[in-house]
Design a protein around this nucleic acid. Structure first.
Lengths: 227, 227
DNA sequence: CGAATAGTGTCTGTTAGACATTATCGA
DNA sequence: TCGATAATGTCTAACAGACACTATTCG
């Protein structure tokens, strides 16, 4: 069939960059610097560059670096969306990724960025709302049985802090004893010897960090956290 | 940058069509009818046709129908693979899907098809071996906590039959009492009134079918099957 | 009736969550 | 010493798996 008579399929990547703010999942949006939808907040995204990207994930990393300054967040492929109508420029394919980053690693005052709560989004161009919904749902499901939420924490954190991150992501309270048993079962954390979180009027909490082996990987539970 | 000086990115879909044969997962391969790799067994796949496909999934359905004759199997997106080297024709993106089909729905003598055990594959072109591995791994994981394997059964089946399908997919025995409790919990099966599997020298088994609501959906378990 | 497998009752070890207790800080 | 929260011990209910028992067919 006359494939040549059609313009090429548009190949892009989009990244749902998630972080925690005010104990709630937030999405980092980027103000579009070109048409279509110039000036609107949207997911950081862009064309796949076959001359410089080794694959779509590489393109996602590049886009994230160029548009948000985030260098090496936890990044995973989410889904691929396609069709004639999702992009006004023509028939397109977008490989969507999600990324998690600790709040402190976000650039403090980047004029081109917006931090929006994941469950109260503004109108978004393309099918970006659906992509965000997919990402949030994926992160919630995966947080039930994996160490995914540690990538929202900084390098050092206490178990109560980590538990509240899990609770923020899952949107429900977590049993403290079970939570600690599970974190132990994941075998992914190590206490930082002698380091406590002092300064508050109560017993100080032990500081932990992620073991080196799990810095880029997830640890999985046989049985997830309850409810 | 001079995007226009490069040929367009090649956009394709590939489908890992899985079925059960001799109590083991098998992949349906298609003998390629064009270059590259003419004549080699490969995953059914092809170009996305922007003039006729509503999206990549639509393309996968079309490819599956045209190459294997399978009309409406259970189909799910698996992953998207991309890069300059995976296809000798140039920089390509392939949206990969997996599909499950009962053995009896496969065309009996299709000269262009080959049924191969999923864990002892022949050499495959492109990165098709990796795609099959991803699919098998995904199906195994998902079968632990969902009704996915019912799509490998015909319309009517007994619980012992379904259990042996689960065991074949998971590659491990399953506790009978727990299995039945879980199938009950999934609330996805209904007994076919008065229909038993007679003809063998033992107590006949009740025949079941999938409830209409679950024909195109999965049912998920809170806690998966053991081990 | 005997062999064979379907289907179910029941017991026990494991796991998860509720609750209570102890530990350790700042004020 | 008191208030607050960390950390852990312990009890109980829910669950999963092992085993045994009953049911129903064919030969």
């Amino acid at each position: 069939m006359a494939v040549d008579t059609f313009p090429p399929i548009i190949c892009t990547v989009d990244v749902v960059l998630l972080t925690l703010h005010d104990d709630a999942l937030h999405v980092v949006l980027h103000l579009r610097d070109r048409e279509p939808f110039l000036g609107m907040p949207a997911l950081p995204g862009g064309y796949v560059h076959q001359q410089e990207d080794r694959d779509a994930e590489d393109a996602a990393v590049r886009v994230l670096r160029d548009k948000t300054g985030i260098a090496s967040p936890y990044l995973e492929q989410l889904a691929t969306l396609s069709g004639p109508a999702r992009d006004p420029r023509g028939w397109s394919i977008s490989v969507a990724y999600y990324a998690l980053v600790p709040r402190q690693l976000l650039p403090v005052d980047a004029a081109q960025l917006r931090l929006m709560p994941a469950d109260r989004l503004p109108a978004l161009p393309f099918d970006h709302r659906r992509i965000v919904e997919l990402a949030v749902s994926r992160v919630r499901v995966k947080s039930h049985y994996s160490s995914l939420p540690v990538h929202l924490c900084g390098e050092r954190f206490t178990l109560p802090q980590l538990q509240s991150v899990y609770e923020a992501v899952l949107g429900e309270p977590v049993n403290k004893v079970s939570f600690r048993r599970k974190m132990d079962e994941l075998a992914m954390l190590e206490p930082i010897d002698g380091e406590l979180e002092l300064g508050r009027a109560n017993r100080p909490a032990q500081l932990y960090r992620v073991r080196r082996e799990f810095r880029r990987t997830l640890s999985l539970l046989e049985r997830g956290l309850g409810s």
